[in-house]
Amino acid sequence: MNWVGHYNYWVVIFLMMSGFYVVISRGNMIKKLLGLNIFSTSVFLLYISMGKIHGGTAPILTDNPNQVYSNPLPHVLILTAIVVGVATTAVGLALVVRIQERYGTIEEDEIRAKDDSL
């Protein structure tokens, strides 16, 4: 097992888990969305790390016939995933804004208290 070779993966996993931690442990709705963003971005880092080749370059054709190119497929997948992520953030924020207007707060425990008291 290659400690040095896997260092990248483990740091990215640490980032993922910190994002995940924010989502499940914090009660403020906007903070949860921030955590979700960190979680997704770290997953993207993991994917792109898998596509990297030492000594390679960006997958754009150059004049050098012996050039090694990095794998373009993960790049395409992550391009899609980034856009999906921002779309989710936008919809989440719209919901949060409406919740603030109807409830007066965006902290989950206060909202639960207001719902239960009805």
């Binding site: 596509g51 960006a58 921002v86």
Partner: peptide, 26 residues
Amino acid sequence: MDAVDVAFTEAAVGTGISTILLLLGM
């Protein structure tokens, strides 16, 4: 990591638009 298109998109979409929307929401 040689992913230039992804970097461009992350900078434009992730840093740009996400931050604007989050600030507006906040």
